[in-house]
Amino acid sequence: MKRILFPAACALTIAVTSCNNAGKQTSEADTAIGSENKAAMEPAANTLTEAEKTAGWKLLFNGSNLDGWRIFKGKESNTWGVVDGTLHCTGSSTDKSDMRGDLITNDQYENFELEADWKIAPQGNSGILYLVTEEFEASYMSGPEYQLIDDENFPEKLEDWQKSGANYAMNPPSKLAAKPVGEWNHTKIVVNKGHVEHWLNGEKVVDTEMWTDEWQKNKTTGKWKDYKGYGVAKKGHICVQDHGSEIWFKNFKIREL
């Protein structure tokens, strides 16, 4: 009986092993196909779907060049460019002492919804500013800033109003929603007749009103007390800050409200 059962058991073992291997291979193949299908379903970077076009969205960055952008106040700069389909700012150990400059849109916007994906280098610091004018020496002297920073590893102590998603020096984020450094984050900014929302990775982290008594109090008792032009303009440029840190942007788009 043993001589009969032993080969049968071997055959059963081989069959089970083969089935398990086949199942594993099928599972791996299904996973790979699923990933490919997911990638195929996602729109290419720096493009708009037909639905977005119908809704009034426009690209601010085409993924190929800096058309539609220029350096703030026409300053010379060699830090902004396009790398692998991303809007890229080089990092610098000398921070702002070399050819650095903020990048602004040619066009100005009043009421809008803005979206962008970004990732920042370790210990990095940057920002997206809006309602920026060129009547002052620096972009931050007029435009409110959506803060982009390495919350976990920045070499200096950060106040809450300095953390990612904050309305810099005005409104701290209600929660920390940034992903770890090196991963892509998704930002949305809504500005509509003074009502401002900052979103980070699907979380609304700031909801505030400009030009109210509370806003004026925050301005005149904080960092902006000596900057009379801060937040005054009701229409201005979109700006990405060159703060000496390496940062990447893609899928920059805007819809006027």
Results as ranks from 00 to 15, higher is better:
residue 36 E to M: 11
residue 98 D to K: 13
residue 243 H to P: 02
residue 159 E to K: 15
residue 4 I to H: 06
residue 82 V to F: 10
residue 111 N to R: 01
residue 136 F to W: 05
residue 134 E to G: 08
residue 76 E to Q: 08
residue 55 A to K: 15
residue 253 K to Q: 07
residue 5 L to Y: 07
residue 126 S to Y: 03
residue 94 T to A: 14
residue 196 V to C: 06
residue 39 A to G: 08
residue 44 A to F: 10
residue 148 L to E: 02
residue 125 N to M: 09
residue 197 E to W: 00
residue 43 P to G: 08
residue 157 K to M: 10
residue 87 L to Q: 02
residue 50 E to C: 04
residue 241 Q to P: 05
residue 200 L to N: 00
residue 243 H to V: 06
residue 79 T to H: 13
residue 145 E to Q: 06
residue 57 W to M: 09
residue 247 I to R: 05
residue 191 V to W: 01
residue 202 G to W: 02
residue 17 T to G: 14
residue 213 D to G: 04
residue 141 M to T: 01
residue 29 A to N: 07
residue 116 A to M: 12
residue 105 T to P: 10
residue 15 A to C: 13
residue 168 Y to R: 07
residue 94 T to C: 02
residue 167 N to K: 11
residue 37 N to L: 14
residue 128 I to Q: 04
residue 190 V to L: 12
residue 34 G to K: 11
residue 243 H to S: 10
residue 251 N to C: 03
residue 251 N to K: 00
residue 96 K to W: 10
residue 223 K to D: 10
residue 1 M to E: 08
residue 102 D to M: 07
residue 115 E to W: 03
residue 220 T to K: 11
residue 257 L to W: 02
residue 245 S to V: 02
residue 1 M to W: 12
residue 85 G to K: 07
residue 54 T to K: 12
residue 224 W to Y: 15
residue 204 K to G: 03
residue 77 S to N: 15
residue 117 D to R: 04
residue 248 W to G: 03
residue 32 A to I: 07
residue 118 W to P: 00
residue 95 D to A: 09
residue 159 E to R: 15
residue 117 D to V: 00
residue 133 T to C: 05
residue 124 G to S: 08
residue 212 T to G: 15
residue 124 G to V: 06
residue 187 T to D: 02
residue 174 S to P: 01
residue 253 K to G: 05
residue 230 Y to I: 00
residue 246 E to D: 03
residue 80 W to Q: 03
residue 67 D to Q: 12
residue 195 H to Y: 14
residue 171 N to L: 02
residue 166 A to C: 12
residue 11 A to W: 11
residue 74 G to T: 05
residue 43 P to D: 08
residue 131 L to H: 11
residue 59 L to I: 00
residue 85 G to C: 07
residue 6 F to C: 08
residue 159 E to P: 05
residue 152 E to C: 05
residue 38 K to L: 13
residue 244 G to R: 00
residue 164 S to F: 12
residue 197 E to D: 09
residue 160 D to S: 11
residue 115 E to Y: 01
residue 2 K to L: 13
residue 73 K to N: 14
residue 167 N to I: 01
residue 157 K to D: 11
residue 200 L to H: 01
